[in-house]
Computed example of a mutant assay.
Amino acid sequence: MEFTVKNVEETMAIAYKLGKFANSGDIICLNGDLGTGKTHFVKGLAKGLEIKEHITSPTFNIVNEYDGRIKLYHFDVYRVNDPDEIEAIGFDEYIFGEGVTVIEWSNYIKELIPKEHISVEIIKIPNKNLNYRKIILNYFGEKYNYIKEIFI
């Protein structure tokens, strides 16, 4: 699925909808260049998960945890030099746990990502005067078939 968004609010609205219907054990891989809106996407998702806390990028922590309707595990692996670093903090316990896991820069650890996951890529649409983005959402695995229903 592809969406063209004109601002941060529209990015967050798509993510909110995904968060409203997310289930325990969902894995969302989030990729895009610096400044494309990945953390804003996570903020919208968190709102859909009924999380009240302020969402920040876990750039220096690697993972932030938030409580809501479902727990959210928010990873940022931009500064990870070796996938073993992620495994050492109990990555499998997070992604196979009861929460929703979001992994920013998941392409850096693609060998650790389960085959069943949701992929979100955010791309800047080049235009000096506009802040448009293209959001490409794909899912892999039958457990994510619900996605096609929520974006009709």
Rank of each mutant, 00 (worst) to 15 (best):
T56K: 13
V100E: 04
E111W: 01
D82V: 03
Y139K: 04
P58N: 03
N138H: 13
T59I: 02
S119V: 02
F91L: 07
R133K: 13
N107D: 15
K124P: 09
N129V: 03
F60A: 03
F140N: 14
R79E: 08
K124N: 14
V100H: 05
Y66K: 07
K124D: 13
I113T: 06
R133V: 07
D76P: 08
D76A: 09
A88I: 11
T56W: 00
P114Q: 05
G97P: 00
S119I: 01
E121L: 11
F75W: 12
F140W: 11
T101K: 02
E121R: 14
I125G: 03
L130M: 12
F140K: 12
P114R: 07
T59W: 02
K134W: 01
N138G: 08
P114Y: 08
E93Q: 10
K71L: 06
G90C: 01
P58E: 03
T56A: 11
D76C: 10
F96W: 07
N61L: 14
E93H: 10
P126C: 01
H117Y: 13
F91S: 06
N81C: 05
K71W: 04
G97S: 08
H117W: 10
Y132N: 15
G99P: 04
Y108H: 14
R79A: 07
I118P: 03
G97L: 00
F75R: 08
G68W: 10
T56F: 10
G99H: 00
Y78P: 09
K110W: 12
L130K: 15
Y94G: 03
N127M: 06
G99A: 03
P58H: 05
E116K: 11
G68D: 12
R69M: 07
E98G: 08
F140T: 05
I125C: 02
E93D: 15
I113G: 06
R69H: 08
I118G: 06
Y139Q: 05
K71Y: 01
D92K: 14
S106K: 09
E121M: 10
K115L: 11
D84G: 05
V102A: 06
D67R: 14
Y108R: 15
P126E: 15
T56Q: 10
K128G: 11
T56H: 04
V77D: 11
I109V: 15
